[in-house]
Design a protein around this nucleic acid. Structure first.
Lengths: 134, 134
DNA sequence: CTAAAACCTGACATTGATGTCAGAGGCAAA
DNA sequence: TTTGCCTCTGACATCAATGTCAGGTTTTAG
């Protein structure tokens, strides 16, 4: 598979795939002329990378942990780091849940506000047709 | 309260507090000589800002939503945006939960691996909609 | 009064992932 | 062979939040 195909399959830009290689996250075979060639498994690998990016891990951290995650090669030290990342994600989940609930209560609370017809700085909303009176 | 005190109470740098003001997230009274002066409530406000930053909202988005969150005021349009943010956070939570579980199974699997010598291939662990290899 | 500490504005630097552009070469179809 | 698309490297641009430095004013402590 060439880089354009992998990009199409994963939804990740060609630019980013090259960047992942540069960061040591994603190896590629090279053809005689230097073009990158990926096995099928690269698709899952890229998805994993994206997932870890989404969890807020840096390239450097992913590069350190990825052999452990894909190969199960875990030194006790790596295992500790992995657990630390898991705990960090746990904290993120807790924080996000808190934020979600907070927004939620604002939303349901605002339902009452909507009935009373009060507006929220309508003059600052440059969008289409705000008909709420100021 | 002066800016240094607020920074100390919130753990946010003085630089960032000035930046928040510039972004319209955090207003400050000014003394005759121009120094910023904050009420006690600013502490909670800064914490809210941090919370929303942590949820991945941009300054611009926070600036738009914050009057509603703190005052409970919302136009229907703003309410929609708020709900969209909540849904976005919900998706983040789901993704993070998935990632956490994945790391978790690597961790417990790796523990087993260390005992049994079996390898643990996380890319083969089923999570949400992994495309099966052909 | 004086010196230190805190504050002000403004500007430039940094980090990280990604976009974009330029110039050169590879590869398959016509 | 020509055409057109894909790929290569390398470099510069971007965005957003924050760090840092400079030069000047204010506040506070001795």
């Amino acid at each position: 598979m060439r880089i354009g195909d992998l990009a199409a399959k994963t939804g990740v830009s060609v630019r980013s795939l090259r960047y992942y290689e540069q960061q040591g996250l994603l190896a590629a075979e090279r053809s005689a002329s230097g073009q990158r060639h990926y096995p099928e498994g690269a698709v899952g690998r890229v998805r994993l990378i994206q997932q870890l990016y989404a969890a807020g891990l840096s390239s450097k951290t992913i590069a350190e942990l990825i052999p452990c995650v894909v190969d199960g090669r875990a030194t006790p030290e790596l295992l500790t780091r992995l657990a630390a990342q898991r705990d960090h994600i746990d904290r993120q989940i807790a924080d996000l849940t808190d934020t979600r609930d907070r927004l939620d209560s604002v939303i349901t609370g605002a339902g009452t506000t909507m009935l009373t017809g009060r507006s929220c700085r309508a003059e600052d909303v440059p969008h289409t047709a705000v008909q709420a009176p100021g």
